[in-house]
Simulated assay, not measured.
Amino acid sequence: MDVDLGAVRAFLAVADDRYFGEAADRLRMSQQAVSKRIAALERNLGVRLFTRTARGARLTVDGQAFLPHARDLIRLAERAVGSVQPGRRALRVDVLNRRIGPAGLLRDFHRAHPETDLDVVALVESDAAAAIAAVEAGTIDATFRAVTVPPDQMPPGIRAARVLDDPHQLLTGPAHPLAAARHVTIADLSGLRIWIPGIVPGTEWAAYYDALAATFGLTIERIGPNFGTDHLLDVLADSPTLASLVGQKTRLLWPQSYDLRRIPVLDPTPVYPHFLVWRTDNPHPGLATLRGYIASAPNRHPTTDAWVPAWAAEPATP
């Protein structure tokens, strides 16, 4: 059965005010229009909802039974509408995972703007093209990705700006030959076994590490299944030969007994370029607030001695 929500609102107004005239004033319509809506609702339900008396309209037994459900219907309708209204629903932002730099930037943004309801999701697990398609479709309001395509090849109405650089560090166990180094140069990494499992061909991070390896002659091993970050840390803690590369802004926790080392890489510093991708016609006020916060946030591009792949454009204002 289809229920007219306008008729339900009229029913609730009369139930609360008891007089059709007062209900009509509250709803800003004529008394006749209120009467017609309630009459239609009664026909639809097959019961009488009110008895008219000299003291106004009184709920019948069926009207009393319908009353709490009518209130629930209106509340649900208002929640449904509110869930898709910009400014009333949460700003939905996609990140590749919740450990990396953009997630930290969003945490800082939430602390600075707690009034902006924020929904941080790791919705799109595949490549940047799928994330951009999700932005285009409206599944998410924005995403942080490394965008490998030129701006003029983006879908119409989609903008991407490089907003956050994450300097890479060498991650080793205590037995590795470079474990005691205060820093290493990119040339020092040549000939090392750098292990980054789980690099998926065709993704933006595969494009980044392919370019890094080709530019500096590095050996990046991606063999073996990806059992997650904890497994990577387990292996590195015990290995005298394996090392990995991690972002400086990536949050990692491990047992104290692992004694892992995070060593800055210099001359130059390879940085992973995170882009913010959004629709230019998205009216959500939280998106404008986020873009303004990012534009003024410090340390988004922390090093001048940075290397990025050729496809990473110069930093842009989001």
Rank of each mutant, 00 (worst) to 15 (best):
E42S: 00
V184A: 06
Q169K: 05
G202D: 01
D165L: 12
T148N: 06
A213Y: 01
F66H: 00
G292A: 13
Y258H: 15
R37Q: 09
G224D: 08
R43L: 14
G224E: 12
G173M: 03
L242M: 10
N97W: 04
L91A: 08
V271G: 04
G228T: 05
L67Q: 09
Q31E: 13
P151T: 07
Q64H: 12
P268I: 07
G157F: 08
Q32D: 07
V135R: 02
A306Y: 03
R28E: 08
L123D: 14
L242S: 08
P283A: 01
L236H: 04
H231E: 11
H110K: 15
P155G: 04
P155W: 04
M1D: 07
S83W: 00
K249L: 11
G87Q: 12
R279T: 12
V93S: 06
F275L: 11
T60K: 01
V34C: 00
A181Y: 08
R92M: 13
R159V: 15
W254C: 05
A80R: 05
W278P: 08
L192P: 00
L245E: 00
N226E: 11
F20R: 14
L5M: 12
A70Q: 05
V308P: 04
A175M: 12
A313R: 13
P283T: 07
P156C: 04
S296M: 14
L5I: 13
P283M: 09
H113R: 14
L232I: 07
A10T: 08
T280S: 15
L91G: 04
L266W: 02
V184I: 02
P315A: 09
D234T: 09
T215H: 14
D119S: 10
L105P: 00
P197H: 09
M29H: 06
A133R: 08
L12C: 04
D108L: 13
D230L: 03
S83M: 13
A214R: 15
R88M: 14
K36R: 15
G104Q: 14
V265K: 03
M29A: 03
D62F: 11
W307I: 09
T269H: 04
T143L: 02
Q153F: 11
A129P: 10
A306I: 08
T51E: 14
H301D: 11
F66R: 08
H110A: 15
I186E: 02
A15L: 01
D165K: 06
V277R: 12
A306Q: 06
R262G: 04
R159P: 01
I186A: 04
V121A: 12
G217R: 13
A65I: 10
G63P: 11
P283V: 12
P174T: 09
P264D: 11
H274G: 07
P264A: 11
T215N: 10
W254L: 05
E78P: 09
P318H: 05
I186Q: 12
E125G: 10
R193C: 10
H69L: 15
L233K: 02
D108W: 08
T304K: 12
P68T: 10
D210R: 07
I294G: 07
V84Q: 14
L96R: 13
A15N: 00
F11D: 05
P225H: 09
T289M: 14
F275P: 01
D305V: 07
T116K: 00
D188Y: 03
V8N: 10
W205E: 15
A211V: 02
L96F: 15
P302N: 10
V120S: 09
A237V: 00
L123C: 03
T148R: 08
P155C: 04
L123Y: 13
L41A: 01
A179G: 04
D17V: 09
P167R: 00
R37G: 03
